[in-house]
Design a protein around this nucleic acid. Sequence first.
DNA 1: AGTTCACTCTC
DNA 2: CAAGAGAGTGAACTT
Length: 622
Amino acid sequence: MKLQQFKESSPICESTPKIIAVDTETTGLRWSQDDYPFGISVAWYSNGKVETDWFEWNVDPNTRRVLYTDISIQFRDWYTNPEIDKIFANAKFDMHMLEKAFRIKPIGNVYDVLNAAWCCNTQENSYGLNNLAEKYLKIDQSETKILRDKVNKARNYCRSQYKHYKLGAGIGEDYWLLKCLDPTDNSCEIYGRKDAVRTLRLWREWYEEALKVLDVRETFETEMSTMMVIYEMENRGIRFFDVEAKDAVEELNQQLALRMLAIKTELQDPFLNINSDGQLRKHLYKKGQSLVHINRLPLPITKLTAKEKKPATDTTTLKQFDNVKVVKDILEYRGITKGKDALLNFQNHICSDAFSSAYDFPWVHAQKSIHANFNQISSQFDKENKTKTGRLTSSNPNLQNIADIAKSGGYFVVDTRKFFGPRRGYVWYCIDYSQLELRLFAERTGGKLKEAFLKGRDPHNETRENVPFLAAMEEGKGRKIAKNTNFTIINCGGAGVLAEKYGVPLHEGKIVVSQFKEEFKETVRRQKQAENYALKYGYIKTIFGRKVNVDLTRDKNGRFLYAYRATSYDIQGSASDIIKRAMVQTNSRLGYLRRKKKIDAHLILSIHDELIFEIKKEHCFK
DNA sequence: AGTTCACTCTC
DNA sequence: CAAGAGAGTGAACTT
């Protein structure tokens, strides 16, 4: 897909510009904790020429605190002027930083060039600002290299000469250091101004046009609306019971110590690292490694690892042998370690909230909260692989994969979910879609499955009744396999998946899948249809017309390796479209209720087909 | 210091 | 003829 180079127009800049690009330089990435912006760069067009401005504050090297004086009145005016469009690269981050430091939010249109790049669906090697600007605007990255080299040297210098300086964890956290050591050093300013220019020009000279040419402007607008909702959600955060978590960690540590001693004794290896699957493999599978015959080692090899084809030591495999004491201990050790690490990780993200403008009431500050990031592109910008289907991801910490003891298939799962909960005086409203993906699949296939939904019948029972092999089974068991089959079929899986993930014997799974495809011919037809579309265009379109790329790599025999995934992308992508729209619409309604009806309610979490709201108790139904 | 692999948790 | 999408960790390896 080739883009026409956008011909640069001559924007007219009277006293105030129509668009500005904004970039912040900060003391780190933890916007909800103790990192702050120390520099702001702005770029705009004036009579067709790019102009920039730069504001900077000193950073106390002993505390890393930014020594704020004042903020430019002109910047404040522009930032809050609804007539001026604001362009960012990774907008939420800069918005968080600016709100936190100066209590200002952008008013008017907010656009994110990195998100625009993602919407354009051109597969980039990197979605970082520098790389995009180099590729599309031929802007070199020399100043970045100079800055990083200088900062690297400065950090080393401080490590020996100014040991009391509080340096950051990485180079990126110490850009302020240059000015601190040498007030005449303006490398950071040059870098900052250039980043704002990159952002502005990428928008104006490339993506604004590209979105139109590639017919994804609507997709982009939805993403921007979603982004503003996510911004508020991140700002609100989620309550974390820090004291209880701390106690739990101590308890888990004691549990760990017991099992560690037992395992090391049982395997007669005082230096064993139980976290090392390599070391465990030797003990569990190699003859003569462990002398303690009561452990009945070595274990029979029942599964090999995917890449290296070594005997697997994962929980599902070892579970078969939990009648062997040391195996049981190892599984428990793993479960506890996982839970403990999760809690420690949450603790690293605890926010003291004293600064947060998300709270109107001072007593709320006494509670601890965690403000995870919710990402529309990916948690990392410098990598090739971005979110494929449009689902949101969560990071720092990931709140979308917190263990659920009610559902988990793990062996010894610590309930870490219970350390999150509603703030005092609030309740949670958890809303989740019923069979969102299966519904979409039924909509796409039509036929019996769609009919079942329309008539309000249970789709899993529909499958059970229509697949003779399942119909002949005991009802509860049949429905369970039917449910897993439905899910497996959506994602283009087969009998192998049913066997490995759900324990359905392979020969039975084969019968079930073939009978399903016989009875629900329309599903096969739809899958073929999606695949053919992907083969023709290189992408599929979701129900809202958003494009999702399909990898058309071939194997050495010329066969497409991943084209079969087209229908799975269609379903997952469409589902994410729906949840994003739900977020935008519910939040818009909540915004109205907050303003006009003094209803205190907020969206705080989005987990794929689930939205969680925090609502003041008195507003709720009795 | 950076990469790959095995592993584990989610929807 | 194939389950998909993610974040994150630690170990063991290479540079």
